[in-house]
Structures are given as structure tokens and as C-alpha cells.
Amino acid sequence: MNLPSQRGRGRKAPMADINVTPLVDVMLVLLIIFMVTAPLLTAGVPVNLPDSRAKALDQEQKPVQLSLDGEGRIFLDDDEIAEANLAAKLEQIAAVQAGGQPPQVFLRADRGLDYGRVMRVMGELNRAGLNRVALVTVEGGNR
């Protein structure tokens, strides 16, 4: 026989469920925002990089980006500099790091550029004492 109990009459038991719908909504909106903005953060100088099967390098500090676009213009990070000013700028960068190890330099050169043009820039890097140079390529191998 199932008799009604006197204790619980007229009172409801507390609800033990958590409504996660608002949390999921907020997380989906944040995910969409990050998916849209992430590609914009890597925008820089448009360079048609060559392919390579090499693995990515591990980095402990932010590298200096030196780019040569298809027209042969030189960019230090995102700022265009004249070839005549390149040696002085590179010496400034090397002098700032004089106490420790020189910074890593990422050299991004368009695949259509003359080999001698890229080697002149690498020679300026070497003369300034920036010997930790990595040539940036597109991951993926043969095209």
C-alpha cells in the first residue's frame, strides 16, 4: 500500500538541474568570433612562398620578420624599408640584443625573385651579425 507522506505535502523538491543552454550559446558565439578573427591576425606582407616538407621551428622569443615581395621591395616586420637603409636597420636590431643571443630572423622571399636578390639580403643579415636566419616556406611539399 502506498500512503501519502505528511512531510512533503504542499512543497516541491528543489530543482537540481543546471541550465547550460546560455553557456553553450555564449561559447558558440565566442568560437565564431575567434574563427573569424584568427586569420586576420596573421596578415602581413603578401608573399608567394615556396613549398617545403620541413617541420615548423620551436620559438622562445618573437622573431624578426624580413620579407621580400614579388616586386623586390623589402619589409621589416610590416614596415617597408629602402634597400639603402637595410644595413643600418639590421645593425640596430643586432645592437639591441648585444648582451644576449641575437634574435631569430624569419626571411620570407617570393618564389619569383632572383636568387641573387635574396642572397644580397642574406649577406646583409650576416654582416650585421644576425646569423640565426630561417627561410620561411609553405608547408606541404610539392605543388
Rank of each mutant, 00 (worst) to 15 (best):
R108K: 11
D69N: 15
F34C: 13
P63M: 06
G116W: 02
F75N: 02
V96N: 09
R11L: 11
V133Y: 00
M35N: 13
P50R: 05
I33N: 02
Q59P: 02
E139R: 08
M1N: 08
A88Y: 00
T37G: 08
F34D: 03
D78P: 01
Q6P: 07
L135E: 03
V138S: 10
Y115G: 14
A84T: 11
K55Y: 02
L3C: 03
V118A: 12
Q97W: 05
V121D: 00
Q104I: 11
E71D: 14
L68E: 05
R73S: 11
L31F: 14
G8T: 10
L40W: 07
G10A: 05
D110L: 08
I93K: 03
L30A: 15
I81Q: 02
K55L: 08
L90N: 00
I18P: 00
V105F: 00
E139H: 06
V64F: 02
L130E: 03
T37R: 10
L125P: 09
P14R: 12
G141I: 06
G140D: 06
D58C: 00
A13G: 05
L31Q: 07
A109Y: 00
L113G: 03
A94Q: 12
A88K: 14
V29F: 07
Q101C: 01
G70K: 13
L57N: 11
D79C: 01
M27D: 01
E60L: 08
D17Q: 13
V26C: 04
Q61Y: 07
A13I: 09
A82F: 04
K55W: 00
V47I: 11
V138H: 11
Q97H: 13
Q61T: 15
R9K: 13
E139F: 03
R120N: 11
I74E: 01
P102L: 05
D114G: 06
K12R: 15
Q61V: 12
A54W: 00
Q104S: 09
Q6F: 06
Q65T: 15
G44S: 09
G123R: 09
A95Q: 08
R132K: 15
F34S: 12
D79E: 15
L86E: 03
A16E: 11
G70Q: 12
K89E: 06
N131E: 11
R9E: 14
A128V: 01
A95F: 03
F34G: 14
A134H: 05
A87K: 10
P46W: 02
I32R: 01
L41G: 14
M1K: 06
T21E: 12
D78T: 13
N2Q: 11
G10Q: 10
Q61P: 00
R127T: 10
Q59T: 12
V138E: 14
G112E: 08
G100Q: 12
L40Y: 10
G44E: 10
L31E: 03
M35G: 15
T21L: 12
P103L: 04
G116Q: 11
A43R: 15
L76K: 05
R117I: 09
R127G: 04
A98S: 14
D78I: 04
T42V: 12
D51E: 13
L90E: 00
E83P: 05
E91S: 12
K62C: 00
D17C: 06
R11G: 04
L31T: 15
V105N: 00
L86Q: 03
L130G: 03
D79V: 15
N142Q: 13
D17W: 13
